[in-house]
Design a binder for these strands. Structure first.
Length: 611
RNA sequence: GCCGGUGUAGCUCAGUGGUAGAGCAACUGAUUCGUAAUCAGUAGGUCGUCGGUUCAAAUCCGAUCACCGGCUCCA
């Protein structure tokens, strides 16, 4: 497993997400669970073949939280089938059937499989190297398997497993091959672990950004406009603006300049870049304009490259760091879109660095630092780093690859981040670093990527004037920190479960008048808050306070400020914080100052003294 | 694109061939109330879309679009 690296653990990790009552080991961390889940998939297969004799078995490996098994079966399995299968599995477990390892010759295995009429198993056998082992489960059922397994099904806990879903899957993951039915299950050592697993699944559902996006009125995707195209509603747009403002500020501070480039451009640009050869199936079709063909951009790089090439560059100008929040459009096949996570139009926080070979290490380190600055501001403090090196099929000289890869490694070492090396996993045009972030419930998301590119400078004939008057090619670095603003936004919504830190909340404070009598005072306060750059609203409905509180809490507003006769008289507000509960009376001036400070410092909450 | 499932009011859902329903939200009125739901009323849907079967379709059939769970792919 990759080494997880922890950058300054933030104290501001939200309380609802920081503690997990019960540790749930992954399969790869627990030899016991490995045996349980391995055996469980055999129990599943046996149960299915008992109930559905026509089902043919294929493969059934463990996953990090359970197991699955792929079957070829003419009729689709239904939810009711799943229940029946689960019941049958319970019976098998109850019979305490032994699992026995048997080493057989290839001929023997072939003979046994042929007798059963299991074509997929035969195909699996062909790919196996000796020794060929199989495991029997009870008297008559067996499957090809390397193990390990529990000694008998009595070691499986019938109350600690559940079948979860059935889905389509291709044989060998190849979409040209047969479509099979995959049954997913989860299995644990104890019922308590199963319950915790199911609690976490429910938690993930509660955090679903599509759900929260609708409930909190952040964004929508409209059928009429088309799949995978995002509409940012006022509340989502406010947040996006805050994110972008922060992003720009951080980039200027890190020595970047910002660009704006067109959304469409002459198709020939994509011929030069090579995208038309390698990326065509991901691009929207070209459009005819006058005598020329134009292309909606799937990437920003050629535009930045053209900007670089617009005049002669000196080595003294390098490194050049150009960033752009560039919206790109990519054709995604129907059926793959998913909320904000997978869309057809999205905004990359793209940047390109043009530098000298000897600047690579320092530039990469700069990118790593900026990445940490930005990601940690959204409470993403745990990263998993992957370094991908030269693949077999690649362009560029050995010396450049070596220099570049060494530069990446040096930067990672100087940053002190552990990483996993993916040998030969780089792009054909250069090595790369990918950064996955871990969210509040332990899920990993790939966002940031840093790629060296030896290809585009070549294709667009980029160069700079060196000290000796020669014109070498610059090194080009592509990097994105959020990756896709839309996708990052979705991940962030799930990370916070919609409970955004104060600085990011679309509505930071809502004024709740106890009676209409204090409305005029509340209106004045509202203006005051807004003038101070605080995102405040006033609830003017004549509902009772309890209702106003309830609605404010449901909309996850960080601060609810109750104003009644007493407060109006005293020039205070009675504050209720979403994170910390009732804060009591607070002077208006103190609240204003604290809120302004929190906005400036991008704080999760206010530093307040009770009045 | 593939396998399976689902599309009924802004949201959550009920309604299996015979005149479209509930709760919440919205709006109006009354109420002026102190930390998670005051009461009453009003309005809102050609049941995703198109086509077919039928005297009659939300309901049956076909196509199509979108969404959901996966596969493949991927930021």
């Amino acid at each position: 497993m990759p080494v997880a690296s922890t950058a300054a653990e933030s104290a501001s990790r939200r309380e609802s997400t920081a503690t997990t009552p019960l540790h749930l080991p992954k399969t790869s961390e627990s030899p016991e669970l490995l045996r349980i889940r391995h055996s469980m998939s055999h129990v599943l297969a046996m149960a299915v073949q008992t109930l559905f004799p026509r089902a043919q078995v294929t493969i059934g490996p463990w996953t990090e939280s359970g197991f699955y098994y792929d079957f070829d079966h003419p009729e689709p399995f239904t939810e009711a089938d799943l229940k029946a299968i689960q019941k049958e599995m319970g019976k098998i477990i109850g019979r305490r059937l032994p699992l026995q390892r048997l080493e057989v010759s290839r001929e023997e295995a072939e003979r046994r499989i042929t007798a059963q009429g299991e074509p997929y198993k035969l195909e699996i056998l062909a790919g196996l190297i000796e020794p060929i082992t199989l495991y029997t489960l009870g008297e008559s059922w067996w499957d090809l398997c390397a193990g390990p397994h529990v000694a008998h099904t009595g070691e499986l806990n019938a109350k600690a497993f559940a079948l979860e879903s059935v889905a389509g899957a291709y044989w060998r993951g190849d979409e040209t091959k047969a479509q099979l039915q995959r049954i997913y299950g989860t299995a644990w050592e104890t019922p308590e672990q199963l319950a915790e697993h199911q609690r976490r699944k429910a938690e993930a559902l509660r955090r679903d950004h599509r759900r929260l996006g609708t409930d909190l009125e952040l964004f929508s995707i409209e059928d009429e406009a088309g799949a995978g195209l995002v509409f940012w509603h006022p509340r989502g747009a406010r947040m996006r603006l805050l994110i972008e403002d922060f992003w720009r500020q951080a980039h200027f501070a890190a020595g970047y300049e910002l660009l704006y480039t067109p959304h469409v451009a002459d198709l020939s640009l994509w011929k030069t870049s090579g995208h038309l050869d390698f990326y065509k199936e991901s691009m929207f079709g070209p459009m005819q304009v006058d005598e020329r063909q134009f292309q909606l951009k799937p990437m920003n790089c050629p535009f930045h490259v053209l900007t670089y090439a617009s005049r002669l560059r000196s080595y003294r100008e390098l490194p050049i760091r150009w960033a752009e929040l560039g919206t790109v459009y990519r054709y995604e096949r129907p059926g793959v879109m998913h909320g904000l996570m997978r869309v057809r139009g999205f905004t990359q926080d793209d940047a390109h660095i043009f530098c000298l070979p000897e600047q690579i290490s320092a530039e990469i380190l700069g990118v790593l630092n900026l990445t940490e600055t930005i990601l940690s501001s959204f409470d993403f403090n745990r990263y998993e780093i992957h370094l991908s090196t030269r693949p077999a099929k690649s362009i560029g000289e050995d010396a450049v690859w070596e220099l570049a890869t060494a530069g990446l490694i040096e930067a990672l070492d100087r940053k002190g981040w552990a990483y996993k090396v993916d040998e030969g996993g780089g792009a054909f045009y250069g090595p790369k670093i990918d950064i996955k972030i871990e969210d509040a419930i332990g899920r990993l998301w790939q966002c940031s990527t840093i790629q060296l590119d030896f290809n585009l400078p070549e294709r667009f004939d980029l160069h700079y004037v060196a000290a000796d008057g020669t014109r070498p090619r610059p090194i080009m670095i592509h990097r994105a920190i959020f990756g896709s603003l839309e996708r990052f936004f979705g991940i962030m919504v799930e990370n916070y479960a919609g409970d955004f830190p104060f600085w990011l909340a679309p509505e930071q404070i809502r004024l709740l008048p106890v009676t209409d009598a204090v409305l005029p005072v509340a209106e004045t306060l509202l203006s005051q808050f807004r003038a101070a750059g605080i995102r405040a609203e006033l609830d003017r409905s004549s509902e009772r306070l309890g209702k106003l509180i309830r609605q404010g809490e449901q909309q996850k507003i960080p601060l609810l400020a109750v104003i009644g006769a007493a407060e109006a008289e005293a020039g205070t507000l009675n504050l209720r914080s979403r994170r910390d509960g009732d804060l009591g009376a607070v002077a208006v001036a103190a609240l204003l100052a604290a809120a302004e400070t929190a906005n400036r410092d991008r704080s999760a909450g206010l530093a307040l003294e009770p009045a």
